[in-house]
Write a protein that binds this DNA or RNA. Sequence first.
RNA 1: GGCCCUGUCGUCCAGCGGUCUAGGACAUAGCCCUCUCAAGGCUAAGACACGGGUUCGAGUCCCGUCAGGGUCACCA
Length: 504
Amino acid sequence: MTQPASPTVRTRIAPSPTGDPHIGNMYVALVNWAFARQSGGQFVVRIEDTDRTRFVEGAEAMFLRSLDWLGLDHDEGPDTGGPCGPYRQSERLPLYREHVDRLIAGGHAYRCFCTPERLKAVRQKATGEMTGYDRQCRTLPPEESARRAAAGEPHTVRLAVPLEGQTQFEDGLRGAITIEHKSVDDQVLLKSDGYPTYHLGVVVDDHLMGVTHVIRAEEWIVSTPKHVLLYQAFGWDVPRYYHMPLIRNPDRSKLSKRKNPTNVMWYRQQGFLPEAVVNYLGMLGHSMPDQREVFTREEFMREFSWQRVTTTGPVFDMEKFEWLNGEWIRRLPVETLTARLKSEGFWPAGLPEDKAQAIVGLMRERMRRLTEFSDAVAFFAARLPYEAALLVPDKKGKPIMTATETRTALSRLKEAYAAFAPEPDAEASGDSLSSQWQAAALEASGRALADELGWKPGEFFTPLRVAITCRRVSTPLFETMEILGREECLARMDEAIEKAKTLA
RNA sequence: GGCCCUGUCGUCCAGCGGUCUAGGACAUAGCCCUCUCAAGGCUAAGACACGGGUUCGAGUCCCGUCAGGGUCACCA
C-alpha cells in the first residue's frame, strides 16, 4: 500500500481562523488525516492567521473542536505542540522575514513601494492576458530599494516570477500541469504589516514542518507554480501535490454558505452524527474498493486510495446525507443512541428515565436526524392537545366511522384493556400471559375486538392511536402502550372518550 | 475575457479497449409487508455532452467544439 523506503509521510490541514469551521475544510482534513494515518505518518494542524482584518476570535478553537468531533486526531498543532512549532503563523513572523530576505538577496523577490491606490488603478486599467501587477518596482535599483526600506517607507515584498518560460508540476490526481509564467503575477509574499501572505507562509512552513504531501482543494491549482518557484528559489524539495475536487452547491458553484449550510457545527446541531459526516464526506470524490457506501472512519482510513479519488466536483446532496445519517442512527446500539441524544441536547424534559431505552428503541428505526426525536416522543412525557376530530378515522378526508362508532370503539377498547392486570410483574408468574400489560397481548386483544366489531385493524386502531399518542402518526401503538403503562393508557382513553362526545 | 481543472442516470459513485443490450446507492414512481409513520423487500423509469480521429473493436486513448467550475487581492 505504501512505500516503506520513502520518508515518513507528513500531511497537514491549515485552516484560517476567519469564521465557522467549513465542511469543505473537514473534507480536505479527512483525506489528509486518512492518508497520514494509513501511511503511519503524522497529521499536523497549522493555523494560518496572517490576515488580521479577517481574524475571528474563537474560530481556531471551534475548528479544533470540529476536528475532534469527527475523530480526526492530530499529532502536532497549536494545542498539542510539537517539534516544529509554533503552529500559528502569527507567532512565526521572524521566520518569514528571514526567508524573504534570502529571496531578495538571491534576486527572487523584490520590495514594492506601490500604494494600494496605485495598485487598484493599475488593475482597473489592465485588460487582456496580463491583469496583475505591472512590476513597476521590480526594476528599482537594489540600493534605492534598500535605502527606502531603511528609511521606513511602507512596502511589500513580491515574488519575481520569471518573465518567460513555464513551471510544471505533478498533481497526484491529474498528472502534469503546466502554467506559463506570463500568466503568473508577481505575488505579494510579505505584506506591509510584516505578515506573510498565504503563498510565502505555506511554502516556508510546509518545508520547515516537513510536510511531504500537500493535499488541498482544487482552487489552489493555479497558484501552485508560485509555490514551486519558491521551493526552487530556496533550494528545497517540492512536495507531492494532490488537489481534491471542490464540493459544489446544487447549482455546481463552489460550496458556499449562501446556498448550502457549510458550518460543520450546524450539522451537529441539526442532529447529524459524526460517523455520518465522515462517511458522507468519504464518499464524495472517492469510492471504496468493494463499492460499499456505509463505512466507518477507520475503514475509510484503511481503504483510502488516490487511485479511487475522482477529480470531478461532487454536489453536496443533503438528501443522500440524511439517508446516510439514518443508516448510522440505526446502526448505533440503543444505549449509545440514548447517550448521544442526551449529550447532544436532543432529550426532551419529562421523559421517564426508566423507559428511556425502550423509547429510543422504538424511535431508532424512524429517525434520519436526532432532531426528530423530541417531537416524536413528546407524548410520552405529557398528554398533548389534539382536536377531537382527529379520533375519527378517515380515508382521503372522508370519515369512515361515525362519531358514535368512534366512541363505541374507544369504549369497548377501554373496557377490554381495563380487564388487564396492572403493571406486568416478572415475579407474578401466576397470571396468564394474555392478561399481562404487554404489547403482544394488547395487540391480540385489540385485534379480536376489531374483528368482532367488523373493522379493519388499521382503521379500528386509529382512535386508539390518537387517544394514546395524541397523534395520527406515532411509534408502534402496542409497544407504546406497554411503555406508557396501564393506568396512563386507561386515563388517556377516558379523556378521548370524553372528547369524542363533543363530536356531532 | 486570459489561464487552469472537469464532463457516465436528477445526485453520489462503479467502469481503468472487447465480459456495457453501461452496474450500485440516494431521490422519484408502483407493488409487497403492515396498527400509523418509518424500516425492509421487489419492480420501473433514468446517463456515457457533441464531432472528429486512433483501433479489428472506444464510455474507456488522442484532438476539437460546447458546457460547468476554479482562478486572476497587501484573503486564504
